[in-house]
Nucleic acid binder design. Structure first.
Length: 554
RNA sequence: UGACCCCUGGUGUAAUGGUAGCACUACAGAUUUUGGUUCUGUUUGUCAGGGUUCGAAUCCUUGGGGGUCAACCA
């Protein structure tokens, strides 16, 4: 057996180099550091798969750490959903659940250490004044008038800030780096601000909170993270990340940036997703049209499909926009192997088999999944009155149409070949029903008719069909980049047909006991899953993704 | 008019100075009791110029294009 070597992405390459060099004794410890201020989306899935995946591959571990340094935007609702989503994706942080807020005491100590080294000062300037003195990317900044306070005064004032003696916005603690740096982040970044806000974990213990740059890297160090993987927009933060490690003399975690995942026909910004929820453009964070993990779960995307998708996308440092078609491919690939086949008629057309006894019911033997011999078989009721799909019949078919037409023959999947004898119309010209005859000797599995038909269509027995609701989902946006227009808000590009509800479709009776979350292939139509809105009286199915359809393309 | 990063088919990603490959998409065909799946094949690519080298997608250089950075957000 030939075995092809899989090529490494640049992060795996780096880790292998580090291990080979004996760095940290070959130890690998990564972390996934979400801020609990929103739901996880497919972009986070990339980070999760990367962080957990690479650690697994090299015998390491991964911490889950909530980056909860801004009490104003964070909430335990998000803490719960995030953990739920990571588990569902198939990853386990075991006993390593941490919060940046666990380290507030230590981080406060780091700040004092900086002050004592003359590397941090309390600034009484307003936010506007600080911004004004910061300069611009092309013009260097100016020192704050408070930059040269004594160590003693800085210490005293910082302690007073902690003790709530100063109002919000009146003072901040700044690192003393370099106001002339071409890197704006090094121009004396604010590292602590006053916020009289209730924190979801530390409650009212603190009224000062560290900023990202003085919490994230420090938390990495405290946990002795070896490889701190983050997205490209933090690249300019790396010199500061390293500066703090150097000045504080703490564990040297190493930050490495990779390009975030972008998908066309959707948006990934948490702020904008929150707006879709708040403005009721969608029905919550787990709306099946949302690019959130919870939305995809409800839509019926299997976790393995998401993992495979992320692996196919790869990891690199260049900006990218992934075609949502690749995600759909991954979903079909997984569901094709696992989803039982059933028959469902979405847009019914009544068929009467005139030569089939009206009171007769035959139970047809049907394969559950041709891709999976283990999946077994089921029995399907067949009778003289059926429903077929409206677009499986055409009165005046084009050349290569091989479904039903007047005088034509078609195979009913798992049943008989029938011939269309008569089209019965309503007064308005619409088709009321088809009268057909069946070929008695053509029963599936015991066909001796010798007739070969090109088309096979799905059907359900009218008397036995279950009436269920179907929610037909399409992409949320009709433009591949909803953010492309400077003058028009992204909501202007919402797809008005992203959800079409079919209140009543017909499905075969074997679906009666289907449970929320279960996926099926509605043969020749698409993959559907049972929605959590289903009740004892009425099942609700979500369209996960259509089947590929080559008909009519050429 | 600053610093840092990036540029390989339509999309994404390999090739670590030595045959530009893989996946998705598209197209064509075979198989098929799902116009699904599967199988086979085809089209399409190294941003541009200069240099180093026996040899450059890869190294150097100039230019072009794109991204990030001026929250008391992360």
């Amino acid at each position: 057996m030939e075995h092809t070597e899989e090529s490494l992405n640049f992060i795996e390459q780096m880790i292998e180099d580090d291990i080979a060099a004996g760095k940290h004794g070959g130890r690998v410890l990564t972390r996934f550091p979400p801020e609990p201020n929103g739901y996880l989306h497919i972009g986070h899935a990339k980070s999760i798969v990367l962080n957990f995946g690479v650690a697994q591959k090299y015998g390491g571990k991964t911490n889950l750490r909530f980056d909860d340094t801004n009490p104003v935007t964070e909430d335990t609702e998000y803490v719960e959903s995030i953990q739920n989503d990571i588990r569902w994706l198939g990853f386990d942080w075991e006993d390593r659940l941490f919060y940046a807020s666990d380290y507030f005491d230590q981080i406060f100590g780091f700040a004092l250490r900086l002050i004592d080294k003359g590397l941090a000062y309390v600034d009484d300037s307003s936010a506007e004044e600080i911004a004004a003195l910061k300069g611009t990317p092309t013009h260097e900044g100016t020192d704050s008038p408070f930059r040269n306070r004594s160590i003693e005064e800085n210490r005293q004032l910082f302690l007073e800030m902690r003790d709530g003696k100063h109002p919000e916005g009146s003072k901040v603690l700044r690192a003393k780096v370099d106001m002339a740096s071409p890197n704006m982040l090094l121009r004396d970044p604010v590292i602590y601000r006053i916020k009289f806000a209730h924190h979801h974990r530390t409650a009212d213990k603190w009224c000062i909170y560290p900023m990202y740059d003085f919490a994230h890297g420090q938390s990495d160090s405290i946990e002795t993270i070896t490889h701190s993987l983050c997205t490209l927009e933090f690249e300019n933060h790396r010199p500061l990340y390293d500066w703090f490690i150097e000045q504080l003399g703490i564990f040297p975690s190493k930050q490495t940036e990779f390009a975030r995942l972008n998908l066309n026909y959707t948006i990934m910004s948490k702020r904008k997703l929150l707006q879709l929820v708040n403005d009721n453009h969608v029905n919550g964070w787990d709306d099946p049209r949302m690019p959130t993990i919870s939305g995809m779960r409800r839509r019926g995307y299997p976790p393995a499909a998401i993992r495979n998708f992320v692996k196919k996308v790869g990891v690199a440092r260049r900006e990218n926009v992934i075609d949502v078609g690749l995600l759909e491919f991954s979903v079909r690939q997984e569901l094709n192997k696992t989803a039982p086949r059933v028959m469902a008629v979405l847009d019914p057309l009544k068929v009467v088999i005139t030569n089939y006894p009206q009171d007769r019911v035959e139970w047809m033997h049907a394969e559950n999944n041709p891709e999976d011999p283990e999946a077994g078989h089921r029995e399907l009721p067949f009778s003289s009155e059926l429903y077929i799909e409206q677009d499986d019949f055409m009165e005046n078919p084009p050349k290569k149409y091989f479904r039903m037409f007047p005088g034509g023959m078609v195979r009913l999947k798992n049943a008989y070949i029938i011939q269309c004898d008569e089209v019965i119309k309503n007064e308005d010209g619409s088709i009321e029903q088809l009268n057909c005859t069946y070929i008695e000797t053509s029963k599936s599995g015991e066909d001796t008719s010798g007739i070969n038909v090109k088309g096979t269509i799905h059907w359900v027995s009218r008397a036995h069909a279950l009436k269920v609701e179907a929610r037909m989902y399409d992409r949320l946006f009709s433009h591949e980049n909803p953010d492309h227009d400077k003058d028009q808000h992204f909501t202007a590009f919402l797809n008005p047909e992203s959800l079409v509800v079919k209140p009543e479709i017909y499905v075969e009776p074997s679906l009666a006991d289907a449970l929320p979350g279960q996926s099926y292939q509605f043969m020749r139509k698409g993959y559907f899953c049972v929605d959590t809105d289903s009740t004892a009286n009425k099942l609700v199915f979500n369209l996960t993704v259509n089947l590929r359809d080559n008909w009519g393309k050429s």
